[in-house]
C-alpha cells in the first residue's frame, strides 16, 4: 500500500475501448466473483447497441451480460451498426454521489477513487438517486450503498482491477492519470475519446473510445 504522500501523487483513471469489446461478459463475471456483488445488482455491466437503417436504436443488457448475450439479435438484417459498451462507476471528479451523501460516507480517496465507508453509510439511497449513470445500488444484505471501487484492494498491490484482468480483448485499461507518461495518458493523447453525460458536469475519469452518440 503506498504511503499517504505517494497516494496524493496518484490519480486513477479508466479507459473503455468500445471498438474492442466483444460482449463476452468475462468482466462482469470477474467483478461478481472478486467483489461478492449481490444477485441482480452490478458494479460493472455490458450493454449492446444495435442501430437500424431507419436510425431506430435497440439496447439491451440481459442480467448485465453476466452470461454474455445469448439471443442472436445481431443477425437482424435491419441492423446496420452494432457495438458493446461496458459500464462501471465513472469515478467522477465532481461526483454527485459524494455531494449528496448526508453523512459523508461516500468520499474521494486521495488517489481519486470514489469509495463508500461501509461503517458510516446509513443506507438512505440518496447517492443511488443522484448518480446519473445508475452505477450505485443498495446492498440489502448489508443495508448500505455499494458500487465499483476500481478494485481498490487490488490496484494498490500492483494488480489490475478484476474486470481489466479478465478482459480477453484489452477493451479496458486503467492507470495513473497524474503520470504524463503512463499508458492511459498516452492513449488519451493519441485517441479521440468521449465522456458519458458530459452535460451533467460530473467530470468523469472514465473515458470512452469509439462511443456513439446514442450511448447515455
Amino acid at each position: 500500500m503506498p504511503s499517504p504522500e505517494e497516494l496524493v501523487k496518484l490519480e486513477w483513471g479508466y479507459i473503455v475501448d468500445t471498438t474492442r469489446c466483444i460482449g463476452c461478459g468475462s468482466c462482469v463475471r470477474a467483478c461478481k466473483l472478486e467483489n461478492d456483488v449481490p444477485d441482480r445488482y452490478f458494479r460493472t455491466w455490458v450493454e449492446r447497441y444495435e442501430i437500424g437503417r431507419d436510425e431506430t436504436v435497440h439496447v439491451d443488457s440481459p442480467n448485465g451480460a453476466l452470461e454474455s448475450f445469448k439471443s442472436d439479435r445481431l443477425a437482424d438484417a435491419s441492423a446496420v451498426k452494432a457495438f458493446f459498451v461496458p459500464k462501471l462507476c465513472n469515478h467522477c471528479r465532481n461526483s454527485a454521489c459524494t455531494q449528496v451523501c448526508p453523512v459523508g460516507a461516500s468520499f474521494h480517496s486521495p488517489d481519486g477513487v470514489v469509495l463508500i465507508d461501509k461503517q458510516r453509510c446509513m443506507g438512505c439511497g440518496y447517492c443511488v438517486q443522484a448518480c446519473p449513470y445508475a452505477c450505485r445500488y443498495i446492498d440489502h444484505a448489508k443495508g448500505t450503498a455499494d458500487k465499483c471501487t476500481l478494485c481498490y484492494h487490488r490496484i494498490h498491490r500492483g494488480l489490475p482491477p478484476a474486470c481489466v484482468q479478465a478482459c480477453p480483448r484489452q477493451a479496458r485499461l486503467y492507470g495513473n492519470l497524474a503520470d504524463p507518461d503512463s499508458p492511459i495518458r498516452r492513449v488519451l493523447h493519441e485517441r479521440r475519446y468521449y465522456l458519458l453525460k458530459p452535460d451533467m458536469g460530473t467530470n468523469p475519469k472514465c473515458y470512452y473510445l469509439g462511443l456513439d452518440l446514442e450511448v447515455k
Binding site: R40, Y41, F42, E47, Y137
Partner: peptide, 12 residues
Amino acid sequence: GFVFPNEQHVTW
C-alpha cells in the same frame, strides 16, 4: 424498453 441493470428495483 431499456433500463440500466441496477434500476430494475425502485430504491425509494
